[in-house]
Design a protein around this nucleic acid. Structure first.
Lengths: 155, 155
DNA sequence: ATAAAAACTTATCGAAATAGTAGGGATTAG
DNA sequence: CTAATCCCTACTATTTCGATAAGTTTTTAT
């Protein structure tokens, strides 16, 4: 009778969260050397098997490359400043948007009004942040945070 | 072995979307008179039975009041300027936050870093919008939009 | 007094998504 | 050769979602 419209995403499942943690882990240790997944899984306290599925997606999206075989592992496919948070989240969570772009007809006025004046507005705020932030930005902030943490011990 | 952590919400299910549409519908026709649910359900193209469940929540949250019996219906419990989008969404979707506030221990550094520098930042952007926007604001914008629409026909 | 309208409540349900687990296959360094 | 590692697919338990359905209660209108 009525179209079934499911949840409009801007949720963050473990895929997105684990994946971002893992790829940031790679960025923090960015040396041009591959890192095996079990190391990342341990460091980030995530099931290795599950992380494999996540990295399968990241690889297909061209964000990481893999080296097979013994001593193999994963590394970033690009430099940290070339990978935005948005790229990572889009790969892992799909379309991140509070507006269902597939359904633009047969909306009530209130519905299309809310799309325009509320959901799209929120969407663009979020997009501003995640498009502007690269892995390098996060690495910098992460290192600054850790430095200021250790200063505390020396006071 | 490991804690099961489910999706961190900032998703918008039909509950939140239908509910906001419906309560905005009430705000647009805010007269101090109750409106029966089947009218709202028709106008907003939503299952009446389902909307009943949504309004049950809105009522428990003190956002609408009901008048039972024939000629009964629902109306806003407060004036439109006293109801923010956040109140509505929080009632219907629960805690809207990209950070799992129940779990603050045993986080990896990267995890707590991301909570602080990314997820919380996005959360506050969203909160700024939805806390600052009231139903009255939306009603105003809605009416302005519809006025400018009809001008087009007269050109 | 009765009938209709409406709020209210609860149970049930199928589909989809989630968060894994499990296990085997392919590839490569040493 | 073998161990390490990527890679792939199938399975599963649980939860959530979006309803539907069917009643019960309350009140107004006639």
């Amino acid at each position: 009778m009525r179209l079934i419209k499911r949840v409009i995403k801007l949720k963050m499942s473990t895929k997105g969260r684990y994946g971002l943690r893992a790829i940031l882990d790679l960025a923090i240790r960015y040396t041009g050397e591959q890192i095996p997944l079990n190391v990342i899984a341990q460091r980030q306290d995530v099931s290795e098997n599950y992380l494999e599925q996540v990295f399968s997606i990241l690889k297909k999206s061209g964000l990481v490359i893999s080296v097979k075989g013994s001593q193999g592992g994963y590394m970033l496919a690009k430099r940290p400043e070339q990978i935005t948070i948005k790229m990572v989240l889009q790969a892992l969570e799909g379309d991140i948007s509070l507006v269902d772009s597939s359904n633009t007809t047969d909306l009530t006025d209130v519905q299309s009004f809310l799309n325009t004046y509320l959901w799209n507005r929120i969407d663009s705020e979020i997009n501003m942040i995640i498009e502007a932030t690269t892995l390098e930005d996060l690495v910098h902030e992460y290192q600054t945070m850790n430095e200021s943490d250790s200063i505390i011990y020396y006071i």
